[in-house]
Design a protein around this nucleic acid. Sequence first.
DNA 1: CTGATCGCCAGCGAGTCGTA
DNA 2: TACGACTCGCTGGCGATCAG
Length: 294
Amino acid sequence: MADKKLWTKYQEIDFFTKSLEVASPEQLFYTTEDKKYYAYWPKKYKGVKTTLQSRNAFIGAYTEKWSLELLKDIARELNVYAVRNVVCEELELTKGSPADVAICKTDSLIQKPEDIIAIFEVKMSIVWNWELLKTNSDYSLKCLGDYQTHQGNPGLLRSDSMLKAIGKSISVRISSLNSARIPIIILGNTPVTKSYYTKVDNLKNYGIIQGFWSLNPSPLDNNGENIKSTKIEGFLRFDSFSEFRNNLLILLKEEQMFFAGMRTKHELGRFVEIANKEETYERKAEKLLSLMRD
DNA sequence: CTGATCGCCAGCGAGTCGTA
DNA sequence: TACGACTCGCTGGCGATCAG
């Protein structure tokens, strides 16, 4: 199988090209004082700035669809499906807050926990800065620099995006024991900040989130230094589609082993009984997780 | 002072829900 | 069924804070 491409500058050009077919330049770019179209405010820009909001929904939709296409190929190998906006009430994945993408045994939007194989939360941004140029009534895009040259804080580099991904994952984990065997992966296209290195490793250790995976092989220009992996691989950067595919297949296989052999129904039932003596749902969940951990 | 980090906040768009 | 009010998740700029 030909190696598919991960996230590169090409995807961002494609995003703007496709979006310009349904949206105006003013909806997708900032307009500088000298009438230039920029994707982000450059770091040194001192003029009057506005905050662009109309682009956000387009970015969310594009990156989720792009992730879906990558996962579809891997799902097909396993004779299962990659589905966008999956609803599963038991796991508190509601219509208002569905799973961005999930790998499932059926292709339905509404799923039962036992048919969900893996859950993916997509947190991707426009990473580079771009200028939209008009040439002969046509458009072209010029890359102005990587994310260190502009004011925006894309994707997983944002602390509140990280906290949101963690919060949603915990919501799924504590919703039902039936989520216990379902891996949750956060897909991004940037590294995570240093202050989250130990956090992502701990989240993996505790079994809450199996990985923060960046699908952007080189987010910085000029071979800028960027992390490949944290100590126990809570964060991973993939450099090729096959590397991504291999890791995902290994994860799904490991989870099946964990499910089959690690805990008996008797043990699980006893843990629930002990955990149920705690006062709040949150405490019950913490107790159960701590019992499952050792 | 400068640069980095954190989390608050905003507007947009899609979807939901109540009402007639 | 049609429609408007409402909610929620998306994103990124901004002020506050801190280290050097």
